[in-house]
Design a protein around this nucleic acid. Structure first.
Lengths: 116, 116
DNA sequence: CGGCATCCAATTCGATACTG
DNA sequence: CAGTATCGAATTGGATGCCG
């Protein structure tokens, strides 16, 4: 075979792009903690701030918006005074479960591996 | 129960840390393309540069070093003149397969979903 | 309460030039 | 061939203050 023009190079790029899509959606310092926290159920903005140790309002807001844009999180504004906003994982958000579990178990093994 | 001291908060953090470990190892613009390319077999530095569209030598070098530090890639210097260096995935590198496949299939679905 | 605007520090990435 | 060194642009994340 010649050089860099393998028959599967196009399919391969698509593969990489798909993986990159997933990584991008989960990228950002707080995405995983947010998803993890919401996986236990619906939570208000302030509760998320309190639950996710170290996060600033700006970052929580920003990453929630990105998750909402990607259809992983649903935002509901309640008509109270002052306003209350609730966030929850959508069905689609929950569909990340397998991949998140996979990453968790690999990461856990990895940590054990580098400890010894 | 008190306030922020839920019984599962520690376990939950550990979970997030494990996921974060995995994400960190795979983080960086070129890690996935590099791993993907090496998954077909051993390759020289220049071949990687040519195979991975758009990567600069500096970034390839840097991300290969990170992958090597994490035990995912093995670097072999051949005693030729001038030097030849080969890179390949270790067993451990190949162990990422399931998680990479999982991400690829989720990302693929996601792309189809947002297209329609 | 739930944000947005602004400013600032740190990090990431790319282009270019140089070395053993 | 296989890198390293240096610089600068762009992006990311944090702190603070203001607003409906």
């Amino acid at each position: 075979m010649n050089e860099n023009d393998k028959p599967d190079s196009a399919a391969c790029s698509a593969h990489h792009m798909a993986i990159r899509d997933t990584m991008d959606i989960l990228a950002g310092k707080w995405k995983i903690p947010i998803i993890g926290t919401l996986s236990f159920g619906k939570k208000r903005f302030m509760v998320l701030i309190a639950s996710i140790k170290g996060i600033a309002a700006k970052m929580l807001s920003k990453e929630l918006q990105e998750l909402e844009l990607n259809g992983l999180v649903r935002r509901t504004v309640l008509d109270t005074k002052p306003v209350t906003v609730e966030y929850e994982l959508t069905e689609y958000g929950h569909s990340l479960r397998p991949i998140i579990n996979e990453m968790a178990s690999w990461g856990k093994q990895h940590r054990e591996r580098i400890m010894k």
